[in-house]
Amino acid sequence: MKACVIQFPGSNRDRDMISALHKIGGEKPDLVWHTDTQLPPTDLVVVPGGFSYGDYLRSGAIAARSPIMNEVCKAAENGVRVMGVCNGFQILTEVGLLPGALMRNAGLRFVCKSVMLKVENADTAFTRLYSAGETIPCPVAHHDGNYFADSETLKQIEDNGQVVFRYAEGTNPNGSINDIAGIVNKQGNVLGMMPHPENLIESDHGGENGRLLFESAMEIAEARAA
């Protein structure tokens, strides 16, 4: 399964993401620059973390209006899997692929630590190798991770099972409504999450709890069996 990573000026988790996709998928992902107007043939588009455009205006706001994002939206409409982590999640909400918005952390501080994540929905393309209700440790590093959606939208995403990851009770680092850490779109092919699974793929570096997310999304087991 072919993956690509979008790079913006100010992306800084792109290399970690490339490394994770390469190590788990066995193939180096294509790199796509933000001014490109075409995506390479791809099954998984990843929008990595960082501070695209210095977080000017709002986190992810300017990146969401860059030329390549039109193509990412078209690909998403065609069912291609799209995954945004941290700043990538902010960009996907700003561009409208995911509902809601990510605001300044309630504590006003940049939060960099490991949190406990509850897998709320293990029936998505990104989480199917986890068990529903399972709790995994995962690092977060952000200033604007406070997820917000109006009450109607919130009800919809909760009722539709679009909340995929929640901060385990008592560990919400940013004030996110309903402890939301990650969501999918209604169709289930676009995921956004604040925590960094790409930093949790090796036992020598904090653990391997993030691997299953990539193995799910890239259909690693299916590729091995084929």
Binding site: L57, R58, A61, R65, T93, E94, P99, G100, A101, M103, F148, A149, D150
Partner: peptide, 9 residues
């Protein structure tokens, strides 16, 4: 609508 404000919030 398109950029200066995020009308979600």
């Amino acid at each position: 609508e398109k950029l200066l404000a995020n009308t979600v919030i």
